[in-house]
């Protein structure tokens, strides 16, 4: 359960204060499927970063699973990110010198898991996402769709309760993009909260709940969508 109350985020641009987010009040229940849409500069990504605990709001309160996470120190935030939040990016952000296996393994490594246990988990994750034949390939030897699948495997390897996707199809052709969305929706079907930021109205409409942001405010919060 994600609960934002009166969240605001200001940026200083020169001498001018820009309100990237203003008075955001939303609740997202465990297992929901939410898309965030809006024009460029509307604050979509900032909202996602605040939910991801990567960005600290200037005002307001953020409660994640009944825990107030607003002012936690870096060490605790990192732990929550590691164990509860999976991130999927537009540019995949795989580490170029590491193989698919090693990229997927990073969250496990960061958590201090023993190497033997890591191996089994990574192998089954690669199988789940159809990457078993690509295990030893580096990112530059993978197609865009494969790269995003590696990124999704990495995001889900620690079984997070929330998956945040920032324009996950932005760098993929439509067919591959749809496959990626299918994959994310499959995870959502297993009760993982899925939040997708997108420009693409078709993809946005697939979510059961659609948020529309303009100038840092939520102007529409539509429940429904064509998924069901």
């Amino acid at each position: 359960m994600i609960s934002l109350r009166g969240i605001g985020r200001d940026f200083l641009l020169g001498r001018q204060t820009v309100h990237a987010l203003a008075d955001i009040d939303i609740d997202i229940r465990q297992g929901e499927y939410v898309s965030i849409m809006g024009p460029s500069g509307s604050g979509k990504s900032t909202l996602l970063n605040v939910i991801a605990l990567l960005d600290r709001p200037t005002r307001g309160n953020y409660t994640l699973d009944e825990q107030d996470v607003t002012g936690l120190p870096d060490e605790k935030l990192a732990k929550i990110r590691r164990e509860h939040i999976g991130f999927v990016f537009q540019f995949f952000h795989l580490i170029p010198r590491l193989t698919a296996t090693e990229n997927v393994e990073i969250p496990l490594v960061l958590s201090g898991m023993a190497a033997a246990e890591r191996q089994d988990r990574v192998r089954s994750a690669l199988v789940t996402f159809g990457l078993e034949g690509r295990a030893d390939h580096r990112p530059d030897q993978l197609s865009g769709g494969e790269r995003q699948r590696v990124a999704i495997a990495r995001a889900t390897i620690l079984q997070p309760s929330v998956i945040l996707a920032d324009e996950p199809t932005g760098n993929l052709d439509q067919a591959t993009g749809n496959q990626v969305i299918d994959m994310l929706e499959k995870l959502n079907a297993e009760k993982v909260t899925l939040i997708i930021v997108t420009h693409d109205a078709d993809i946005g409409r697939r979510a059961k709940r659609q948020l529309r942001l303009v100038d840092g405010r939520i102007i529409a919060d539509i429940h429904g969508g064509d998924h069901e």
């Binding site: 732990k79 164990e83 509860h84 960061l110 958590s111 201090g112 023993a114 997070p160 309760s161 009760k191």
Partner: peptide, 21 residues
């Protein structure tokens, strides 16, 4: 799937992995 209380490990990268990375 996973609840907030779930903890997998110590949460600190072990030094061997650190060096390998």
């Amino acid at each position: 799937m996973a609840g907030l209380s779930q903890t997998f490990t110590v949460g600190i990268m072990n030094s061997r992995d650190n060096l390998v990375f």
